[in-house]
Every structure is written in structure tokens, then in C-alpha cells.
Amino acid sequence: MQTKLIVTLLSPILIYGCSTTATISRANGESLDAKILRSAPGAVVVQIDNGSELRIPRSEITDIDHPGNGVAVVGGLLSAYGGLNIAAGAPKCSENGGAYCTGVFLPAAIGASMLIWGLSTWISSTDAASSPPSSGSVPKVPQASAFDFSLSTHGSGSSAVLAR
């Protein structure tokens, strides 16, 4: 029994623990597993296996498989199962003891931690790969917008009339 519990607790760590690199598919058909460090104008900067940085032009990138998405999906499904398990098993905890209650709450606890780790890893990678703004300034607000209710003629000589 104790061996099963240890395997259950350690398997998500062993399966997903080292998967923090993105798989970057390139136009020439090659793929590269690397950690995305940051985005530069027209390129993505990654850290390759030997620790050095490599700048990949965006025009050469056809797809990026970010880390963490698989873990987040499995964690979300396990959390949902854990929630159902808690709803069904929690009322029986007092009569069945501590080991039973551990089994009731364990899937939700493991699933929630996998979901949080997966989402934070995925968000970190996608943020690092996103295009930097073209300039450091705040964009200008357009002269007219859908919410501009001022009365202007726009050269036609007529006024805007609001309908009821």
C-alpha cells in the first residue's frame, strides 16, 4: 500500500518535472528543444543545452510547443476528478478513518498542484516568446471611436441625431 502511494505521489514529478523547454519547429524542418529566455524585435532568444544563448529569427519559426500545457490539462482533469471524489467521499471520512480521507483528497491536491505548475510554466514561456512592443510609448488614442458621441459634421453639414 505504501509503495502505491509513493509511486502515485512521485510519478507526476518524474514524468513532467524536467519538461521546461519549448519545442521550436523551424521552416527548414528541424526542431529545437530550448528554454525561451526573451523576445527581441524580429527574433526569439533561447538558451540551448550548453547554456549559451541562440537568437532565432521569427521568419524561421513555424511553430512553438510551449512547456506546461500537457501538465496543466492532466492536472485540470485530475482536479475535476478529485472534486467529484471529495463530493462523494467526504461525508464518509469520519466513519472510515484517516487513510480513507487521504485517498479522497489526494487526487484533488495532486491535480491542483499540477495545474498550477503547468499554467505558470506555460504562461512564463508564452510571455517570453511574445513580440515586444514596437516602441516604449503608449499608443495614441484614435481621433474618433465607436464611443465618441460628440456632435461633429465630418464635412457633411448635418448633425448627429440620437434615436430613442
Results as ranks from 00 to 15, higher is better:
141 V>D: 05
20 T>Y: 15
91 P>I: 14
33 D>G: 11
109 A>T: 15
73 V>G: 09
48 I>F: 05
30 E>I: 08
57 P>V: 15
39 S>L: 14
7 V>P: 04
135 S>H: 08
18 C>I: 12
87 A>I: 12
146 A>I: 08
33 D>A: 13
56 I>P: 06
51 G>L: 12
81 Y>V: 12
130 S>F: 01
70 G>I: 03
5 L>Q: 03
129 A>I: 01
47 Q>P: 03
7 V>L: 14
87 A>R: 11
3 T>H: 15
81 Y>N: 11
116 I>Y: 15
159 S>T: 08
5 L>P: 00
104 V>R: 06
106 L>A: 15
111 G>F: 04
63 D>Y: 00
136 G>K: 13
30 E>R: 14
161 V>F: 04
105 F>T: 08
92 K>Y: 14
115 L>V: 02
106 L>D: 02
41 P>C: 12
79 S>V: 02
60 E>C: 07
91 P>H: 15
36 I>Q: 00
121 T>Q: 05
151 L>G: 10
132 P>L: 13
162 L>T: 11
16 Y>M: 07
27 A>F: 02
34 A>Q: 04
67 P>N: 12
152 S>H: 08
54 L>A: 11
39 S>A: 13
123 I>F: 14
6 I>D: 02
23 T>R: 06
9 L>Q: 05
55 R>N: 02
137 S>I: 07
94 S>Y: 04
142 P>D: 03
153 T>F: 06
151 L>W: 00
144 A>Y: 07
23 T>F: 13
82 G>Q: 00
45 V>Q: 12
85 N>F: 10
119 L>A: 07
95 E>K: 10
68 G>Q: 05
79 S>Y: 09
20 T>A: 02
154 H>T: 07
81 Y>I: 13
141 V>C: 09
149 F>G: 01
57 P>I: 15
106 L>E: 10
155 G>R: 03
142 P>S: 03
1 M>W: 15
54 L>M: 14
56 I>Q: 05
113 S>H: 05
34 A>W: 00
113 S>V: 15
135 S>Q: 06
20 T>C: 07
111 G>K: 01
156 S>T: 06
19 S>A: 13
31 S>V: 06
157 G>N: 04
142 P>Q: 06
13 I>A: 02
129 A>K: 01
56 I>G: 09
31 S>Y: 12
88 A>H: 03
24 I>E: 07
143 Q>P: 03
122 W>P: 00
151 L>I: 03
50 N>L: 04
151 L>F: 06
2 Q>F: 15
159 S>K: 10
59 S>C: 14
87 A>G: 07
46 V>D: 04
160 A>V: 01
15 I>E: 01
98 G>V: 09
67 P>H: 01
35 K>Q: 09
153 T>K: 14
104 V>N: 02
80 A>H: 01
48 I>V: 15
114 M>K: 04
52 S>G: 10
93 C>Q: 04
24 I>V: 11
56 I>M: 09
74 V>E: 08
133 P>M: 06
145 S>N: 06
69 N>R: 12
111 G>C: 06
19 S>R: 02
37 L>Q: 07
39 S>N: 13
131 S>M: 12
157 G>R: 01
8 T>M: 12
52 S>K: 09
162 L>P: 03
64 I>D: 10
1 M>S: 09
151 L>Y: 01
68 G>E: 00
157 G>P: 02
8 T>L: 14
18 C>A: 12
9 L>A: 15
161 V>A: 10
76 G>L: 00
52 S>M: 14
8 T>D: 11
113 S>A: 14
11 S>K: 12
43 A>E: 11
